[in-house]
């Protein structure tokens, strides 16, 4: 759970900076006051929580049926950790001027109340390397409870960044948060590469 929390926390800032800029101006533009923003945020986070719970269940059962041998599980997850970590580092250092948010399509939604739900689903299912890493972790856990805990850690770590969203407009140096977040994501990738290597050699 600790690792998942760190992964969520490190990649959450990039997620916030790339998606938050698309999502929250839209959300806040239509809401009246902090109470409504908080309600929207709560729905958004609750949706993410439910999607992650669903993912934890699906990947764990998939892992149970596909990866039965513990040796195979260790090697497979070690290998996947390395591959996805390299993807995560690449994702962090890639020089695209601004990463596109999968939730950009939000502008097309007409029904106001569905917006935070839609944002929650799209944000959770964005196939970023961090999510791939956590999917691997969830699939290779011994029990379903542990798989839930992994996703809970990831959810908690990444959600922390969204909590001060109503105040994000006040932050002067958003590029600093983004830069630090990108480096933290790269470092998280490095940690998981080492973990993957250790899983392979132990």
């Amino acid at each position: 759970m600790a690792e998942s929390f760190i992964l969520g926390l490190s990649s959450g800032s990039v997620c916030l900076v790339t998606c938050g800029m698309v999502m929250f101006p839209y959300m806040m533009a239509r809401t009246a006051g902090a109470k409504a923003i908080t309600a929207d945020l709560a729905v958004f986070l609750a949706t993410r929580f439910l999607v992650y719970a669903l993912l934890a269940t699906i990947v764990w059962f998939a892992g149970q049926s596909l990866l039965r041998s513990p040796v195979f599980t260790n090697y497979t997850s070690g290998f996947l950790y390395i591959v996805f970590s390299i993807m995560l580092i690449w994702y962090a250092i890639e020089k695209r001027p601004s990463k596109t948010c999968p939730a950009a399509v939000v502008a097309k939604i007409e029904k106001r109340k569905l917006v935070p739900v839609f944002l929650g689903v799209v944000n959770s299912l964005a196939l970023c390397p961090s999510l791939l890493l956590i999917l691997t972790k969830g699939a290779t856990q011994a029990t379903l409870g542990k798989s839930y805990l992994s996703f809970l850690g990831f959810f908690a770590g990444s959600s922390l960044w969204f909590l001060p969203v109503p105040a994000i407009g006040l932050v002067k140096k958003k590029n600093v948060i983004e830069t630090v977040g990108i480096f933290a994501t790269g470092l998280a990738g490095t940690i998981f590469i080492i973990k993957g290597i250790l899983m392979l050699i132990r």
């Binding site: 760190i6 926390l9 490190s10 600093v176 480096f183 933290a184 790269g186 470092l187 998280a188 940690i191």
Partner: peptide
């Protein structure tokens, strides 16, 4: 030059967890 801040965040968290 912002890398030490990211590393600070990571080492503080990993040290706390482990």
């Amino acid at each position: 030059k912002w890398m030490p801040f990211a590393l600070l965040l990571m080492v503080m968290l990993t040290a706390a967890m482990t």
